[in-house]
Computed example of a mutant assay.
Amino acid sequence: MRLLFVGDVVGNLGMKMVEQYLPLLKKDLKPQVTIVNGENVTKVGRGINEKLFKQLMNAGADVVTLGNHAWNNEEIFSFIDDTKKLIRPLNYPGKDVPGNGYCQLNVNGTQVAIINLQGRIFMEETDDPFAEIDRLVEQLKKDQVKVIFVDMHAETTSEKKAMALYLDGKISALVGTHTHVQTSDAHVLNKGTAFLTDVGMTGPDDGVIGMEYEPVIKRFLTSRPSRFTVEENGSKVLSACLIDVDNQTGLAKAIKPILICKEHPYVG
Rank of each mutant, 00 (worst) to 15 (best):
D28E: 14
V36E: 02
N58C: 14
P31T: 13
A164I: 12
G60Y: 04
T183V: 12
L22V: 10
T83K: 03
Y266I: 13
C103Y: 02
N37K: 07
G203S: 06
G169A: 10
P89F: 00
L140M: 02
D246W: 04
T157H: 15
L189I: 12
I260S: 08
K54Y: 09
E263N: 11
G38R: 06
K218D: 11
R46W: 03
F195E: 12
D168E: 10
I115C: 01
I80D: 00
A186I: 08
E155P: 12
P98E: 01
C261T: 13
V107S: 03
K84R: 11
A252M: 14
V10R: 04
N40M: 05
K141L: 12
L29Q: 15
I114Q: 02
K141Q: 12
A186R: 09
D28I: 14
G192V: 08
R2H: 10
K218C: 14
K26W: 13
G176Y: 09
V112Q: 04
E263V: 14
S172K: 12
E159Y: 06
D134K: 13
I48M: 02
D206F: 03
P225G: 07
R227T: 11
S235D: 07
A252V: 15
I209D: 04
D143W: 05
P265R: 13
N37C: 05
E39C: 04
A164L: 14
M57T: 09
Q144T: 10
L167V: 10
E50M: 05
G169S: 08
T34Q: 09
L52A: 05
I148A: 05
S235H: 07
K54S: 11
E263W: 09
E124A: 15
Q144K: 13
E75W: 00
A70F: 01
D28S: 15
T183A: 13
T110N: 05
E124L: 14
V64K: 03
I121W: 10
V188L: 08
D28A: 14
G234Q: 00
V112G: 04
